[in-house]
Simulated scan of single mutants.
Amino acid sequence: MTAGPGARPGTDALADQPGAQYRYHRDLFPALHDWENTERSIVAFTGETGPEGLLGLDQMGHFGPQGCDLAAEAVVTARGGPGGTVDLCELGSGFGGALRYTVDRLTTRGIAVGRSYGVDLVPEHCEVSARISRAQGREGMTELCASATAVPLPAASLDAVLITGSMPHFPEPGEVLREAGRLLRPGGLLVLTEEVSLKPGGGNPSEAFRAVHPRGVFFLTSLAGRLEQLDRAGFVGVERRDVKEWAVSLLTDRLKVVRIFRGSVAGIYGDASADRIRDTLAAARAEYLAGGLLPTLFTARKG
């Protein structure tokens, strides 16, 4: 775990990150690796296609599409309302669900998205994301299989960098934020949702939390450490929004949906995954209530 910007995981943990992240997410969302069949199952249950299908959203982390709404609204607010075009990327884009949803939300809010990039370390995640994007006819989104600390894009080439819930999966978050700063044009915007990555101090979350958020896959940073990382990465105008009340209510609602429709969730993801999704959300909600984790929305500008 990272207690602050100076703490570094061992070299073995860094070297095994693609494998560790792949195994965790493969076990949680096995069906997504067969997207065509999964999409048919989701449509059969919800009557919808696209990212707003009820079950497909569980690939979007603890906050689901509502967290993407937070990120999109932060971009709109920072730009002073609708209008204009942005080039952006998401670091730690996983299966691409959050990025696709956010691009669509920005478009409906009157902001055109020129180029969008999903950056993920795990080749299998990038392959799944690209397959879904192709199936949806998305020509403007590019998957980049790369570390979030070394993105193959030019410096100062983006207007916005998004990290929607992926911070706990970065063993070197300070270096990720430094890379975000490199990618942004002067005055460019960083939007960061902290779902289960930010803790108040040096304490550790409960064992119940760790049972479904294993070490080596989830890395936590203290609030003081994160602020120092942002400062070292050259960000200014850092604004932190505490979203605890909102997050507790959101996870309460998501848990109700997962429990009520457990049979349908299990039909798509399997019994073990359905129970793990439920337990993951429940453990995060318990940590929010206990004050062990700080659900937060950060925005900051490239100085």
Rank of each mutant, 00 (worst) to 15 (best):
M1D: 02
P5N: 00
A7R: 10
G10E: 12
G10P: 05
T11R: 10
T11N: 08
A13T: 15
A15R: 14
Q17T: 11
Q21K: 09
R23H: 12
R23F: 05
D27K: 02
D27N: 09
D27P: 00
E36T: 15
R40C: 08
R40L: 14
G47H: 02
E52I: 08
L55F: 15
M60Y: 02
F63M: 14
G64D: 12
L70T: 07
A72H: 06
A74I: 01
V86A: 04
V86T: 05
C89L: 13
G92Y: 08
S93E: 10
G94D: 09
D104Y: 00
L106A: 04
I111M: 02
I111A: 03
V119S: 00
D120K: 07
D120C: 02
V122K: 02
P123G: 12
P123W: 14
E124M: 05
C126H: 09
V128C: 01
S129K: 00
S129Q: 03
A130V: 08
R131N: 10
R131H: 13
I132S: 06
S133A: 15
R138F: 11
E139H: 06
L144E: 08
C145E: 06
A148K: 01
V151M: 09
P152N: 08
A155I: 10
L158Q: 02
L158E: 03
D159M: 04
A160T: 15
I163K: 11
S166I: 06
S166E: 07
P171L: 07
G174I: 01
V176E: 02
R185Y: 07
R185P: 02
P186Y: 09
G188V: 01
T193H: 02
L198D: 00
P200F: 03
G202N: 03
G203C: 04
N204I: 02
P205G: 01
S206F: 00
A208G: 12
P214N: 14
R215W: 11
V217D: 00
F218G: 00
R232H: 13
R232D: 10
F235H: 13
F235A: 10
V236W: 02
G237N: 10
E239F: 00
E239Y: 08
R240G: 04
R241V: 13
W246H: 10
V248C: 10
V248S: 01
K256I: 14
I260R: 12
I260Y: 00
G267T: 06
G270V: 09
A274P: 13
T280L: 13
A282C: 03
A284P: 03
R285Y: 09
A286S: 15
G291C: 10
L294R: 05
L297Y: 06
L297R: 09
A300V: 03
K302A: 13
